[in-house]
């Protein structure tokens, strides 16, 4: 039997740190994927030149300013315009035809981070003549990220990636038509913001607030543990219209046994699912 004391100690430290943060500040990361959180914490320890997680805990508990400065590092906000172009292509081909049949549309973008993918969807809808009848609810737990999303201002040096992704996603014009460049930054066109509401929402505790035709939640659930993941899938199920669409990250599968009867694939590679209306959903959640 291989005993691994150092490792066990680290896992204990992670648990204690998360508990301490919750007790002191109310921020709750205890239902996050333990391994991902641990990696983030170990990076903080390294960046701060500390010896171990316990030292980090000491600093976090006794120095509120320090805690506030490091808090955003717990949430992962890596994103870009038209991230995974193949997803947008699949959405255009397979979901848009259904969306044409509704008189008005509600789209919930859960975990929108700094908003790049929300504007990407707005552009896609605009090009498919669907934007006018759409209301997008873009939510995140990270207030600072939401502020950036609201501003719609991004770094010009990423423009070439944006344009490249846009074209690969099946864009019909040129990305530059949707922005104005100001030196180091570019700003999203005002008309794209018109039908987007950015809202502070916590998937771990908040309830459903919309009956959406489409929910996008890409690369968020990979940071949640099994229990929280189940809660969120249920939340999405309850927040979708009868045959609504759920779009996940390209490497996220919700088709574990418990979800099989509640969602079906619309596009397997694009990880686009469709709700299967059922009375039995409550059985799925303990």
């Amino acid at each position: 039997m291989h005993l691994d004391n150092e490792n066990d100690s680290e896992d204990i430290e992670v648990r204690l740190l998360l508990e301490a943060i919750f007790l002191k500040y109310g921020s709750d990361f205890r239902s996050y994927s333990r391994l991902s959180v641990k990696r983030q914490i170990l990076k903080m320890v390294k960046d701060q030149n500390l010896g171990n997680i316990s030292e980090l805990q000491h600093k976090m508990i006794w120095d509120e300013l320090f805690f506030k400065s490091i808090l955003p590092k717990f949430s992962i906000n890596v994103t870009e315009h038209f991230r995974d172009p193949s997803f947008y292509k699949a959405f255009r081909n397979d979901v848009v035809p259904f969306l044409r049949t509704y008189p008005s549309l509600k789209i919930w973008h859960a975990g929108c981070a700094t908003g790049e993918e929300v504007y990407s969807m707005a552009i896609l809808l605009e090009e498919e003549n669907l934007y006018e009848k759409t209301q997008i609810y873009a939510t995140d737990i990270n207030i600072k990220a939401l502020e950036i999303a609201k501003g719609g201002k991004y770094l010009s040096r990423n423009l070439s990636t944006c344009s490249e992704n846009y074209l690969k996603s099946g864009g019909k014009k040129s990305f530059s038509e949707y922005i104005s460049v100001q030196d180091m930054d570019f700003i999203m066109d005002k008309k794209l913001k018109k039908n987007i509401l950015f809202i502070d929402h916590n998937l771990a505790v908040d309830e459903t607030f919309v009956e959406a035709h489409v929910i996008l939640c890409r690369n968020v659930l990979i940071y949640f543990n099994e229990v929280l993941t189940r809660r969120v899938i249920k939340l999405f199920y309850d927040s979708l219209q009868k045959h609504g669409f759920l779009c996940m990250g390209l490497r996220e599968s919700i088709m574990r046994s418990a979800n099989k009867e509640h969602f079906k694939y619309l596009n397997r590679d694009g990880k686009i699912y469709r709700k299967v209306p059922s009375e039995s959903f409550n059985r799925m959640v303990k």
Binding site: L35, S36, R39, K43, I76, V78, N219, I222, Y223, R251
Partner: peptide, 23 residues
């Protein structure tokens, strides 16, 4: 490991993907 994801192995011998910052 898929492009643009860190690939980790969790203690329960499952794969865990992450888009956290570059290392």
């Amino acid at each position: 490991a898929p492009a643009d994801y860190h690939m980790l192995v969790d203690k329960d011998k499952t794969i865990c993907l992450s888009t956290s910052d570059m290392t």
